[in-house]
Design a protein around this nucleic acid. Structure first.
Ligand code: MN
Ligand code: MN
Ligand code: ZN
Ligand code: ZN
Lengths: 161, 161
DNA sequence: TTATTAGATGAGAATTATTACTATCTTGTC
DNA sequence: GACAAGATAGTAATAATTCTCATCTAATAA
C-alpha cells in the first residue's frame, strides 16, 4: 500500500534504507519489530561471510549481551520463512551420500528436499562472464536445479504443499 | 599394480563389478574389507535417493541387525576420505545465512569451506542439453564453484593445507 | 499517556546429529 | 592357527537445533 512497502532491496543499498525496508516487511507480515530483530538483521546485512547461527549469536551478543541463542534461532527461522534473508544451502542439517563419485549435478526439490541426479553431460559447460574475484582457484562447477519435484508440484488431493 | 586395481567405476556397472573395485580400493588403502563395510557399500550403491547416515543405518540393519550407528558414521567418513563415495553438499552441519536475498551464486573453498558471492550476472545462463527427467519443475539454477580460496591455495609457511 | 494483549524474550530442558571412548572381536598376514 | 593392526558394538559425550514456559514488550486503541 505505502509506496515504500514494495521497494526492491539492492546489494548496495545502505543500511538505513534496508532497515526501513525491513520494518515495512515486518509490518506487512504482522511481525513486531523488536530491538533484537533489528540488531539481528543489521548483523546479517553487515556480515560478508555467510555466518552460522552461532556466529551470528556471538556478534549480536556484543550489542545485546542478554540475548539468547534461542531467540537467534527463532528469528532466523522467521526471517527465512518471510524471505527477509536467505540460506546458502538446502542441504544443511544432515549429511547426504551417494556411491556415484563421478562429478554430476542435482535437481533439488525445495519442498521435500529430495535430490535427483542430473548427469554432467546433460548440462552445457558453465561459462563465466568475468574474472573471478581475488585469486580463487576453481576446480569444478556444481549446478543445482532448484524447484519442485513431480510429487510436490502436483495439485494434492487433500493437504496443500 | 593389479590391472583391475585402477578400473574406473561407471554408473551402470553391476554390483559385483563395483564390489570388486571396492575391495581393490580397500586393499590399496590398507583398509580391512569387513562384512560391515561391504554391506554399507552395497546399500550405498543400491540407494538412488542420496541417503542420510540415519537412513543408511536403517537399511543396513536389515542385513546386520547388530550394527551400530557409530560404525555407520565411522565408515562413511572413511569412505569419503578415500573417495569411495561422495557427499552431496559441502554445507551440511550448520545453517549458513545472508541478508542478500537476490539470486546469486557462490565460490566455495573445499578446504576451509568459506563462501564468497558470485553475482548471477557473472555467470552465463545455464543451458540444458536434454530434457529433465520425470516432470521436475525447475525454478532456478544455483551454481557453486568449488575449489580453493586464496589463503588455502597459497603454499603455506609451516602447516600444509 | 495508559491499558490491553498478541506475540516476543530469556533460561533452560529436550531432541537430533555427530563424535569419542573402550573392551572385545575380525581381518589380513605369516 | 597365531599375531597384530585395526574394526566393532555399546555407550558416553558433544554439537546443533528445537521446545517449553514464565515474564516482558511492541503495537494499538482509549
Ligand atoms: Mn547424485
Ligand atoms: Mn551469498
Ligand atoms: Zn518434492
Ligand atoms: Zn579456503
Amino acid at each position: 500500500m505505502h509506496p515504500l512497502r514494495r521497494v526492491r532491496i539492492q546489494p548496495d543499498m545502505d543500511f538505513e534504507k534496508r532497515l526501513e525496508w525491513f520494518r515495512n516487511e515486518c509490518a506487512a507480515a504482522g511481525l513486531p519489530c523488536t530491538h533484537q530483530r533489528e540488531v539481528l538483521y543489521r548483523a546479517l546485512v553487515e556480515a560478508k561471510d555467510h555466518p552460522s547461527p552461532e556466529m551470528l549469536y556471538e556478534r549480536v551478543k556484543r550489542k545485546i549481551p542478554s540475548i539468547s541463542l534461542g531467540t537467534v534461532y527463532r528469528n532466523i527461522k522467521i526471517f527465512l520463512d518471510h524471505g527477509l534473508i536467505g540460506e546458502v544451502s538446502l542441504h544443511h542439517g544432515s549429511l547426504r551420500l551417494e556411491a556415484n563419485n563421478e562429478p554430476h549435478h542435482h535437481l533439488v526439490c525445495r519442498h521435500c528436499r529430495k535430490m535427483f541426479d542430473l548427469p554432467a553431460a546433460g548440462v552445457h559447460a558453465i561459462r563465466l562472464r568475468r574474472a573471478l574475484p581475488e585469486g580463487f582457484q576453481v576446480e569444478r562447477f556444481v549446478v543445482e536445479a532448484h524447484g519442485l519435484c513431480q510429487e510436490c508440484a502436483a495439485p494434492k488431493k487433500r493437504r496443500s504443499n
